[in-house]
Amino acid sequence: MLTSRLFHPVDIKTMLELRKVGFRYTDKKRGGSFVINGFDLMVGEGEYVAILGRNAAGKTTLAKLIKGLLHPSSGEILVDGQTISPGEGGSHVGLILSNPDEQLLFPIVEEEMAFGLECIGVGREMIRKRITEYLGLLGMEQFLSFPLHFLSKCQQQRVAIAAVLVLEPNYLIIDEATSVLDPRWKGRFMSILSELNVTRKMAVIHFTTSVEDASYAHHILILESGEVTTKYIPAEISSLRSSLTEKGYCLPPVAELSLLLEQMGHPIPQGILTIEEMEMFLLSAMRD
């Protein structure tokens, strides 16, 4: 078992920490053995971690544990040095789920956006300002007065994302939230995350099945049957292509293309991860 202390000395007061967290469901259907076992994780201010796992690896369970929607059967979870009690992830931790239906509570976009802010006591003027800012970030400002059921799945998910980001959480937990976004908004969402991670030092923990989504993070942890089995940094993805494929992960198109080209005898430099980098590399290879 690896302890995931990602950056070096981090202050416990600005850190999210999971200490030997174990969890088992108690209901009849899923009850029994631990789905999460002795899980350790430390994520400090400004860190960006992707936790890559296939279906049933324990991703959603972990995401809900961190938000306080589930309570650990063993071990503890600390946010800024404070143990979280059941149902108390607090507004410092934001959680975006994969399906907007599970997340959205109100009939109107504006109500959905305002609810969390009202709960944490933000003033009326500030609420209006922040709603405009964050809806705008997700391209949804013109839908402020719209009933949510008039919107498409992708638009609903953008409202769900905006409604979490508007609370300006210090820690953002994302559980497979890009699957209902169309390609353009998926790309936009990934760059919004990177921006907020840099400008506001928001820590990001992204649970995903997609190697491509994971490659935006500073660190990638592989989760198998509730345990972290491997740690990577994104630049290593290219050298780990075959082992990831063997484990059943689908590679981003660029990584798959690099793998195939190497098999044909064309070495591709390690650092090439994005389509733009690949384009530049091929252009120079074909020209000189």
């Binding site: 198109p253 660029v254 798959e256 293309l257 195939l260 080209l261 044909m264 389509i275 690949m278 384009e279 091929l282 252009l283 074909m286």
Partner: peptide, 29 residues
């Protein structure tokens, strides 16, 4: 268009004689 197809179109725009109507990693490779 799929990202790999887009990449081929960009390469063609920069004067590389490439067939852009491909979209899978295997056909593009």
């Amino acid at each position: 268009l799929p990202p790999l197809t887009r990449m081929l179109i960009h390469l063609r725009e920069k004067g590389i004689e490439v067939n852009p109507s491909l979209d899978t990693p295997s056909s593009v490779s």
